[in-house]
């Protein structure tokens, strides 16, 4: 989860987020190099006293600074496109979880075996325990087995919401009348936090998400225990 002084991405817990983090670092490196180069050029232009009365063109440098940015863009675009298509891929999921956004809570449906439905509301600050996270804790967490392919289907019952869990690399709009499909795999057992990421009304900030990745057989026990 995100805590104080978290300036960069959260620790990843899924292979997709691992890829996204690598891509982010790759791109940031290129951005930093460009920024340093440009500011160095600006500074040296401002500070030097050199002049050249007859300078009109420099064919070589012009060719280089036309082609080089194109190559840099390709170096960013290719891995980006690759990632885009990897993120879309869903192969052979074991479970489908339906997520429905409401004003202002999320409801979840697991209907592969039994039809399990529950709503997930934020716990108000007054009712929190001292070890809980303010504005992040919910009454019903969303359990799912780790190291298992899961298909998420996101939709909304009223306005547009966005179901987001940063450490899983998922941000998917929940749109009324449309079902959006996404892919979820967790590397490890943990609790992952997220929040609605599309302004959806007065209580937009108060509809957090908690995912709980657990051992597959514990998840099965949970499914079986639900009537």
């Amino acid at each position: 989860m995100s805590t104080w002084k978290t300036l960069f991405l959260q620790d990843s817990a899924s292979p997709l987020m691992e890829h996204l983090t690598l891509f982010h670092d790759h791109t940031i490196l290129i951005l930093i190099l460009i920024t340093i180069l440009v500011s160095q050029m600006l500074l040296s232009m401002l500070l030097n006293k050199l002049s050249h009365r007859f300078l009109l063109e420099g064919q070589l440098i012009e060719t280089i600074w036309t082609i080089l940015p194109a190559i840099i863009l390709i170096l960013i675009a290719l891995p980006s496109l690759r990632l885009l298509y990897i993120l879309d891929e869903i192969n052979n999921p074991s479970i489908t979880i339906k997520i429905i956004g409401h004003q202002w809570y999320w409801s979840y449906e697991y209907s592969d075996y039994k039809n399990i439905e529950f709503d997930s509301y934020m716990i108000p600050t007054k009712e929190l325990n001292s070890f809980n996270f303010r504005l992040l804790e919910v009454d019903n967490r969303t359990p799912f087995p780790y190291k298992t392919q899961i298909r998420l289907l996101v939709t909304s019952a009223d306005v547009i919401h966005s179901w987001t869990v940063p450490s899983m690399g998922i941000k998917i709009d929940s749109t009324p009348g449309r079902l959006n499909q996404a892919n979820l795999i967790a590397n490890r057992s943990s609790i992952f936090f997220g929040q609605c990421s599309e302004i959806c009304g007065a209580n937009h900030s108060f509809m957090p998400i908690i995912l709980e990745s657990i051992k597959p057989n514990l998840f099965l026990n949970w499914i079986i225990s639900k009537t």
């Binding site: 489908t96 339906k98 429905i100 449906e109 209907s111 592969d112 039809n115 439905e117 298909r151 289907l153 939709t155 019952a157 079902l179």
Partner: peptide, 8 residues
């Protein structure tokens, strides 16, 4: 359809 359609 039970697996993928929202119950509503």
């Amino acid at each position: 359809y039970r697996a993928i359609c929202p119950n509503e």
